[in-house]
Amino acid sequence: MTVQTLDAAGGSRTNRPESGPAPAPGAAGRRLGWRRRLLRTGSVLAALGLWQLLTGLQVRLWLDFSQLPTTLQVADSLRQQVGTALYWEDLGDSLRRILLGFLLAAVLGTATGVLVARSRTAEDLLGPVLELLRPIPAIALVPVAILLFPGTEQGIVFITATAAYFPVVVSTRHAVRALSPVWEEAVLTLGGGRLRVLAQVVLPGALPGILGGLSVGMGVAWICVISAEMLSGQYGIGYRTWQDYTVVDYPGVLVGMVSIGLLGRITAGAVELVGRRLTRWLPPRTERSTAWTP
């Protein structure tokens, strides 16, 4: 279930809900009808019910559900944990790490992407290094992070930022390269200089593409913050989940996963929401281009 949620966080920009034909400006728009709300709620409830069934009946069909806690046990454990300060501290720790890492990645990634796309010198200087570093999974940097930083806290933020950094760089670079030269020419012939072009053309024009990278980056950041916490963390939801596993508190493990899933959903939703607000100028999707009803 956790994996699913993180996946959705990563790819959610590509399958955003259809807007219908040209919503009036300022109208709320994109509000789901009761039918689709019902379907969505039903799907989550069905998944929970299925889990309850499989674990409650201790199904053993090659896959072994007998050791896993049921939905109700997990809910019970969650209710207990929500009442403790420790749960919220762990949540806050993970959230702080991810937001800090993500913010660093967003700023540095966008800057690098623009630089590499706009300057041949920057491309020649940074490009090869970036291409060599990019295939290294951020989580493989744990030993380096431990050696490099004075504390684990900075190390985890470093790993999270590195994970989110590359998707942002790559998408920014592509988006900036794909910009229509007409807009830049327009600003130049209206008397604008390089900074104008950067602020009025490059950044706003590349924003839809950058947001795609930010969405993916947020998904990867969660994967890495949790893994890093499991490997080397003190406190944090990943650390707690692993702790629960080592003391055989299986409902606790599942509570950790559910919490990660919910937080991932919320942060991905926030990126999506900000993105939509900033890109209202995109031409409205037509019914034909988005609605895909099997």
Binding site: A186, G191, P204, L207, T279, L282
Partner: peptide, 19 residues
Amino acid sequence: GPDADRALVFQEDGLLPWR
């Protein structure tokens, strides 16, 4: 180089769509 004294009008899509 380009200058504000010589304005250019494009065939289409010359406006900044986000403004």
